[in-house]
Design a protein around this nucleic acid. Structure first.
Length: 301
DNA sequence: GTTGAGCGTT
């Protein structure tokens, strides 16, 4: 089948971007979210009624109205919670943005093939934006890659985009995340509630992509983890803790199966394991945690 | 079969 693209924009008057469809003519919500992080659906203006209409969304798959996408421009939907949250954050972050708060940080790149070099990393990540630094971590004695590395971009926008998607590097899927050493500091004045949910009663045929596509309808998904070998559960992390908390206790139907959602319990909560190199030593870190309202950042939990 | 990999010699 010939490749079909539909035109999608953040606003009716904005420059649209072309998003690829699947072989069956549907569009994956994840394809939309790859360009518009946080997207939870699409809408369009019905030419007859001039009203906005929602595009049918079933488990992360968007279906063409009347089985034909036509030449309309589709507009991205974002979760209501995100919008409200964005407005709240806007006021607070306007100051930070002016101060250059949205500075980039090193991102850890996990799952690299052993053969991948720093030049390979640079070549790959430059396709997203200007790269300031790449590293492949190696065993000091043997020089063998440890299978992970770091990258840093000039633009914060590039960083956001890179974190939001998976990366095929030299034939392996890799993830880019804020490194553990940075997560704690990334949200200095937000109390840390859990952004991560436990998904019980999963079946073996549920893939990380399918879970991501399914949960995207509730809010921006930043991580999906399925333990291997199969253990009938998974973890899904949202960008927004309110989205995660709202789902806890629910039974949801995924691929016809009822799964149960609950809070993710802490993996380890040994702060010395998490921050072994805390400036001033781990005793001062422990004291700080005792006094603090913070819980562990969800990517540690 | 309901609680998870891996995190940086500076």
């Amino acid at each position: 089948m010939s490749e079909l693209y539909i035109r999608v924009a953040e606003d009716e008057n904005e420059e649209p971007m072309e998003i690829p469809s699947e072989d069956d003519g549907t569009i994956l919500l994840s394809s939309v979210a790859a360009q518009f992080p946080g997207a939870c659906g699409l809408r369009y203006r019905n030419p007859e009624s001039q009203c906005m209409r929602g595009v049918r969304l079933v488990e992360g798959v968007l279906h063409a109205p009347e089985n034909d996408w036509g030449s309309l421009v589709y507009v991205v939907n974002y979760p209501k919670d995100n919008k409200r949250k964005m407005e709240e954050i806007d006021a607070a972050s306007a100051v930070k943005v002016k101060r250059g708060f949205q500075k980039t940080s090193d991102l850890i790149v996990l799952g690299l093939p052993w053969k991948t070099t720093e030049q390979d990393l640079k070549d790959y990540f430059t396709t997203f934006g200007e790269v300031i630094m790449v590293q492949v971590k190696r065993d000091v004695k043997t020089g063998n890659s440890k299978g992970f590395g770091f990258v840093r971009f000039t633009e914060y926008e590039t960083q956001t985009k890179v974190i939001a998607q998976r990366h095929m590097i030299d034939g392996r899927w890799c993830d880019c995340k804020l490194p553990n050493s940075k997560v704690f500091w990334a949200f200095p004045d937000e109390p840390m509630r859990s952004r991560k949910i436990f998904v019980g009663r999963c079946t073996e045929d549920m893939t990380t992509d399918e879970l991501r596509q399914y949960f995207m309808q509730y809010g921006e998904v930043t991580d999906v983890f399925i333990p291997k070998p199969f253990r009938a559960f998974a973890f899904v992390t949202f960008a927004d803790d309110q989205v995660a908390q709202a789902l806890c206790g629910e039974d949801l139907i995924i691929k016809g199966i009822s799964v149960h959602i609950s809070n993710a319990e802490p993996k380890h909560n040994n702060i010395h394991q998490l921050f072994p190199n805390f400036p001033g030593g781990s005793a001062s870190l422990a004291a700080m945690f005792d006094r603090s309202q913070y819980q562990f950042p969800s990517s540690h939990v």
